[in-house]
Simulated assay, not measured.
Amino acid sequence: MITDPIKKAKNGTYYFRANLGYDSSGKKIQKYRSGFKTKKEARAEYSKLLLMKPEELTHSKDKMSFKQYVEELFLPWYKTKVKMQTYENRLNIILKHFPYFYKLAVCEIEPIHVQKWQLSLSKNLKPSYVRAIQGLFSIAMDRAVVLGIATSNPSKIIGNVKKQKPQIDFWTKEEFEKVISLIYKEDFYQHFLFISLWFLFMTGMRIGEATAIQWDDLDFETGVLSIDKTLYYKNQSDYRFTEPKTKASVRHIVIDPTTLNLLQEWKEVQQKLIKTNFVMSYNGIPTQKHTIAYAIGRYAKMAGVHRIRIHGLRHSHASLLISMGENPLIIKERLGHKDIETTLGTYGHLYPNSNFDVAHKLNGVIAFKPAQQNYDDSPKNQFTVNYLRRREYEKVQ
């Protein structure tokens, strides 16, 4: 059954994608045309392309605007390739920063345009964020090449901004003690904030993992906490469980007795006022990260310590374990890292005296008695012979 190549877009216009054979190098020739007011106009253009020679098709460029491409082709395709939470988070980046190219056709975007865009972004944004923006743009241009709308990806020609190792921001044990000591547990809402900050600091969970934790996930008898999901939170009526970040994120960690007692205490207080299975909840629904972030800023100021991001509590847990001399492999398993390289790459610099500690431990570890005679009668080379002669001469003198 032959399908009609002419399609109708949501805005009422017509478009088509034509497969037109192969060029002299064996590369598949594809052309995309859109924006036709009638189906007849689209078909006429389609027929025109069919009659063109391969060399003519190779040198002809598709004049589709980047704006039209992003809205009609790229976003619908990209939405099917990533998780919904990822798509919605990155959609904001695309809608904010891609319009820089909207006045250009896809095929007209050149390396010079990308470089100017990259420089303008770098003036006010962190390198890591610029890398994320350009990474999305590069994905979009790669797809345009696949569809035959562009012949190359100018973003890859320019290259992304240099990756910089982010500074790990965390609270020391002493700084956390100052903060947590200011939270009044006799107040229900402050009790909720107390247990939330404590829970994050003492487990190293990602915020999405922590807000997804149910009371059923915690075995109070064994102290084992099961982490097998994360929470997507859009608003109070739109939230759901999603798959963890990686397979390694699915894990079991053991909670210390002090934290277990505090959680048991919070559960009893919480369940008297609300009925919910979410551990981090004061109103029956899971908490949103902005609530925690605001509390961190407020209490940090009161305690006279520097403000950290929510993820800084995860870093704080790791730094606490490192200061206690914990094995990196244990830290990797507890944090749910994919591999040990991630753990060491992120926290390796927090072991400033590790080489000195190793040297101290190695000191005197090997027991031996120096040989009193030569047991090796293997052939001697000129350097050995000269050395032995010098030793004999020194004995005579």
Rank of each mutant, 00 (worst) to 15 (best):
V70G: 14
E394V: 06
F356M: 09
G312I: 10
K245N: 02
T222N: 00
L218Q: 04
R309L: 06
A144S: 14
F16H: 08
R33Y: 08
P111C: 05
V70E: 14
T3P: 06
Y239Q: 11
L193H: 03
I133S: 13
M202Q: 11
N283T: 13
Y393Q: 08
Q190D: 15
T287L: 04
V161K: 09
Y46V: 03
K61A: 15
F188H: 11
I157Q: 12
S249C: 06
L182P: 11
L121T: 08
I93L: 14
I2R: 14
Y351S: 04
Y375H: 09
G345W: 02
S237W: 00
L273G: 06
Y189R: 13
Q118L: 12
I274D: 03
I292D: 10
V145D: 12
S226W: 03
I207G: 01
S378L: 05
P286K: 00
T291Y: 14
Y32G: 05
V145H: 03
L49C: 06
I255S: 00
Y375G: 10
I180F: 13
K39R: 13
P54K: 03
K63Q: 15
T13W: 00
E268A: 11
H59W: 11
E45M: 07
E175H: 11
T13N: 10
E268K: 12
Y294G: 00
L231R: 07
F356Y: 09
E55M: 02
N327K: 08
K126A: 14
N261H: 11
N386E: 13
E177S: 14
Q382W: 09
D339G: 08
G26P: 05
K245C: 02
S24C: 04
G35C: 08
Q214F: 11
W117N: 12
T246Q: 00
L119E: 14
K61P: 08
R334Y: 02
L329H: 03
E56G: 10
F137Q: 13
T203C: 10
H97V: 07
L335S: 05
L273R: 15
I168M: 04
D216A: 13
L362R: 03
R33I: 05
H59A: 02
N353A: 04
T242P: 06
G223T: 00
A371D: 04
I213Y: 07
G21F: 02
N261R: 13
G304I: 02
L320S: 06
L57T: 05
L262T: 05
P379G: 04
P127K: 02
S316V: 01
V250K: 14
S65A: 15
M302W: 05
K83G: 15
L193Q: 15
I227C: 00
V385M: 03
K63M: 13
H191C: 12
Y69Q: 11
L388A: 10
E186D: 14
D256W: 06
G159A: 09
